[in-house]
Design a protein around this nucleic acid. Sequence first.
DNA 1: AGATTGAGCGGCA
DNA 2: TGCCGCTCAATCT
Length: 154
Amino acid sequence: MVVVKIKNYFIGIKVENGYLIENTIPLPKDSQYLKRFGKIDNKFQNFGMIIYKLYIGEIDNFEALNEINYKLNVTNLTRKILDEILNIKRGDTITYGELGKKVNTSPRVVGFLLNKNPLPLLYPCHRVVGKKDIGGYKFGRNNKLQLLIKEGAL
DNA sequence: AGATTGAGCGGCA
DNA sequence: TGCCGCTCAATCT
């Protein structure tokens, strides 16, 4: 449970037995989302660097997943949803409703479960959007918007 | 075991 | 546009 500093970004990281089990996206220093990750500690610099490269688009999420030892600590339905998310290509999006149909659940539940995605960016849940607007995001709609613009989805 | 809570959606005016 | 009712897994109580 630490915060890793890369350039001018700060990334919350949780590692268990050498496996990444939770992370945040790169955030500004004072971000509320970093609070529960505690102090800055660079011992997991390697994890942080990969997430940073993923964030700026230097690598894609498949490369990142290959380079990182991670463990997905979620229930069955969440796992199914996250697996589906891996099929969304960079620059592409899917709606909560469409994704819900693929795994036989409701749009509301997709959003509810994605809110708990422990590995954002690695599992690019920002590519799931609402039908009428961009939809919500754990780290704020503006971050989601910036990510989608950066990826060329908008 | 029952109530509440959402990162949504479609229909209707 | 804005409101309403439906949705249903996870997380309380």
